[in-house]
Computed example of a mutant assay.
Amino acid sequence: MTDVVQQGTPEANPAALGLVGFGLTTVLLSLINAGLLPAGGEPVVIPLALAFGGLIQIIAGIFEFRVRNTFGMTAFLSYGAFWWWFALLLLFAGNGVIDLSAAGPTVGVALLLWGVFTLYMWIGTFRLPKILFLIFLTLWVTFLLLGLGAATGAQGLTHAGGMLGIVCGGLAMYGSFGIVTNATFGRTVIPLGATPVLG
């Protein structure tokens, strides 16, 4: 993920795959959270979360490990695991394996903890291309809104989180588009924001 604009490297950039796996899945779920698609559509998200949001990001994270990118490895493996957690939560609850009726604000607190993790990952983007800064900025705020919405039952917060999640997922898909297009053309065609030079 660090090297989203560098050209001429012999290895393929795994961030292109990880970002689209994250982005596409996030947009679909966020459309439901925002109330633009029916809540009954959540079962459609489950296989996408397992296959594309989960598995593809885990694969991308493993490849980030191979190219010695600590940030990319941590991000893709973690959010790949998030999608597996979310899909399994829906599957288990929907099939009576677990009972969430007495869970109270626990799911909301879990989302808030994901927000804390994303907040410190966002700080890591201060030295990365601007597209990653924007993705992680919108993501930690999305988790904050969704977590507060789930913990308090405030539907307005969940809808706001869904709307911001659409933006976040769209930014991730744009980042993937830029990496793929720039690599294909061998030059910067799609701007992703230069990596800041910090002392």
Rank of each mutant, 00 (worst) to 15 (best):
G104H: 08
P105F: 10
P105H: 12
P105K: 11
T106K: 02
V107Q: 11
V107T: 07
V107A: 11
G108P: 01
V109K: 03
A110H: 00
L111D: 06
L111W: 07
L113A: 10
W114F: 10
W114Y: 09
W114T: 03
W114N: 05
G115I: 06
G115Y: 07
G115C: 10
V116A: 13
V116N: 04
F117I: 14
F117Q: 07
F117D: 09
F117E: 10
T118W: 01
T118E: 05
T118C: 01
T118F: 01
L119I: 00
L119D: 06
Y120P: 00
M121I: 00
M121D: 03
W122N: 04
W122M: 11
I123A: 14
I123D: 12
T125F: 01
T125G: 01
F126M: 15
F126C: 08
F126Q: 15
R127P: 00
R127I: 13
L128R: 12
L128P: 00
L128A: 09
L128W: 08
P129M: 11
P129S: 15
P129N: 15
K130R: 14
K130V: 13
I131Q: 07
I131Y: 04
I131T: 07
L132Y: 03
L132A: 04
F133C: 10
L134N: 09
L134I: 09
L134H: 07
I135M: 03
I135S: 03
I135T: 01
I135Y: 01
F136K: 02
F136E: 06
L137G: 12
L137I: 10
T138K: 02
T138G: 06
L139D: 01
L139P: 00
L139S: 05
T142G: 08
F143T: 05
F143Y: 15
L144E: 14
L144H: 07
L145T: 13
L146G: 07
L146F: 08
G147K: 09
L148F: 13
G149E: 15
T152G: 12
T152P: 04
G153D: 13
G153E: 13
G153M: 08
G153P: 02
A154R: 05
A154C: 03
A154I: 13
Q155S: 09
G156F: 11
L157M: 13
L157E: 11
L157C: 05
T158W: 04
T158V: 14
T158S: 12
T158D: 11
H159D: 15
A160Q: 06
G162A: 12
L164S: 05
L164Q: 05
L164D: 06
G165M: 12
G165C: 09
